[in-house]
């Protein structure tokens, strides 16, 4: 059977996403997020989204566009002080916000991708963010149980893909992208360049192709 290309058009990618979906988006402070996908999503009629990301950009910028645009029902992440619209919308009862400490957030996404339901971490033990979570002592220290975080769709940004979907990243634009690529039912990777199979050094591949379902090639646009 001939191999089917994973490279899709933006319309095909957006058509695979539904209102109400849980969507992971790679990013750290407007670095390393899939700009074209976010742009196309905000131009779509998708709504009631749960956005799972480190932060939510700035008001009207980057991932902030989802909220400015009224497409968000809930946020799961860890740092929204760069976007004051998040606290405003939360205080007004317009959105749900769940804060998970950044390291626990990263690990919970990794866990979802690798088949681990939950894990114990000392981070947040005894604090407000540990409230309501199971706490257990190991070797005299308190740990809280953090559950894996799954998503319906992961939108990730990589530097290059080959036609199979192997991904390499660029500097600190890597951030949560490789973790999110593993943790969703459908992973769409936006890349700056697609190269033929065999061109990427196998030692340098960060995300092996089995984690990637669709590729948006910005270099071709």
């Amino acid at each position: 059977m001939p191999r089917k290309s994973k490279v899709v058009t933006m319309d095909q990618a957006v058509a695979a996403i539904r209102s109400g979906d849980r969507i992971m988006v790679g990013s750290f402070g407007n670095s390393g997020y899939p700009e074209s996908l976010v742009e196309a999503m905000t131009a779509s009629g998708l709504k009631d989204l749960t956005i799972i990301s480190n932060d939510l950009g700035s008001p009207g910028i980057g991932l902030g566009k989802f909220l400015t645009n009224g497409q968000v029902r809930a946020l799961i992440g860890n740092y929204y002080n760069w976007n004051p619209e998040v606290a405003q919308a939360y205080n007004a009862g317009q959105i749900d916000v769940t804060l998970v400490p950044q390291g626990s957030f990263a690990e919970a996404i990794r866990a979802a991708g690798v088949g681990i339901a939950a894990f114990y971490t000392p981070t947040a033990a005894g604090t407000e963010l540990g409230k309501g979570k199971e706490t257990r002592e190991f070797n005299g220290r308190s740990y809280v149980l953090e559950q894996a975080i799954h998503a319906d769709v992961a939108l990730v940004k990589a530097s290059k893909a080959d036609e199979l979907g192997n991904l390499v990243y660029y500097k600190t634009a890597r951030n949560f992208n490789p973790l999110m690529a593993m943790a969703a039912t459908l992973t769409i990777a936006e890349v700056d360049e697609v190269v033929p199979v065999g061109r990427l050094d196998p030692e340098c591949v960060v995300t092996p192709h089995l984690f990637v379902n669709m590729i948006i090639n910005r270099g071709a646009q």
């Binding site: 860890n78 740092y79 929204y80 002080n81 400490p101 947040a124 963010l129």
Partner: peptide, 10 residues
């Protein structure tokens, strides 16, 4: 006005 923890607890 604030809603964020970042990596502080970790």
């Amino acid at each position: 006005r604030q809603l964020g923890v970042g990596g502080a607890m970790d």
